[in-house]
């Protein structure tokens, strides 16, 4: 019997999670660890099922997804625009670059008290946090992508009369695209990471983070773990979509020779 490479890869990638579950189940059922500290996989599955049959859990997921999507989209669009501006204009880079580079050194979580003071405990500060998280990687990678466009492309463009918007749309952006999509993929990961921070630090009724918080307050680690798995699965799913989109966009793969 022959096994396809895809099946092999899938089997290979299942080894670690499977082992983890087996060890986990063993430790949990051995009685050495209290079940409220480490619930068994069995319990997790039960909690998972009870959660998902509740209509409310869907609302929690929806609230988190909406937050991530809005923040990610605003952050990506603004990051792309800002990166484009700094990439194209040395003057803009001189004006904004140093400030941007200083401020991005501060972990976004550090700004949370300030953001709450200014905007209150509302939906806005949560979205702001996610937006900022998405903004940085998109800005940086768009900027770098544009600065790495080979100078020959610009020379060719000027030989053939491409300038202004046409130059940006037809040459600069396609040439920088692989770097831009890398930035967007990173931004998505950052958005999910910061979603948790936003929901845990800025209390809200709906959200997966809220469920995790609830689990902590109730000493119900099963609830916490179900929340973690939900976030992981959703994040993985969205990242896969974005990666596939990026692949589809990036026709002709870039293999650039270093001179």
């Amino acid at each position: 019997m022959t096994i396809s490479n895809k099946t092999k890869a899938f089997l290979g990638s299942s080894i670690v999670p499977l082992l983890l579950v087996i060890v986990w189940q063993y430790v949990a059922s051995s009685g050495y660890v209290a079940s409220f500290i480490l619930p068994s996989p069995n319990q997790i599955i039960k909690t998972f099922v009870t959660n998902f049959v509740e209509k409310e859990y869907a609302l929690h997921i929806a609230a988190s997804l909406k937050r991530v999507l809005i923040g990610f989209l605003i952050g990506t669009v603004s990051g792309f625009s800002f990166g484009l501006l700094m990439g194209l204009s040395r003057t803009a880079e001189k004006i904004f670059g140093p400030f941007f580079n200083v401020i991005r050194q501060v972990p976004i979580i550090g700004f949370i008290p300030l953001i709450i003071m200014w905007f209150g405990v509302t939906e806005l500060p949560r979205i702001i946090i996610i937006t900022v998280a998405a903004f940085y990687p998109v800005t940086l990678n768009t900027f770098a992508g544009i600065r790495n466009v080979p100078k020959e492309y610009f020379e060719l463009s000027s030989v053939y009369g491409y300038k202004g918007l046409k130059l940006i749309r037809r040459i600069v952006i396609p040439a920088a695209l692989p770097s831009i999509t890398t930035g967007i993929t990173l931004a998505l990961g950052m958005s999910w990471a910061m979603l948790m921070a936003a929901e845990l630090f800025i209390q809200t009724y709906f959200g997966i983070g809220t469920r995790i918080q609830l689990g902590r307050d109730k000493f119900n680690m099963a609830l916490v773990i179900v929340g973690i798995i939900t976030v992981g699965a959703l994040g993985f799913f969205m990242t896969t979509i974005v990666e596939q989109l990026a692949k589809a966009l990036d026709r002709g793969k870039i293999i650039r020779k270093e001179t």
Binding site: P150, Y153, E155, V159, G161, P174, A175, R251, K257
Partner: peptide, 21 residues
């Protein structure tokens, strides 16, 4: 004083656009 339509350019590193056939 500027690139002319009368000239064509070939570079050492080809400078083909990777996103075009």
């Amino acid at each position: 004083d500027a690139p002319s339509e009368k000239t064509g350019y070939v570079f050492q590193q080809y400078a083909l656009f990777p996103w075009r056939t």
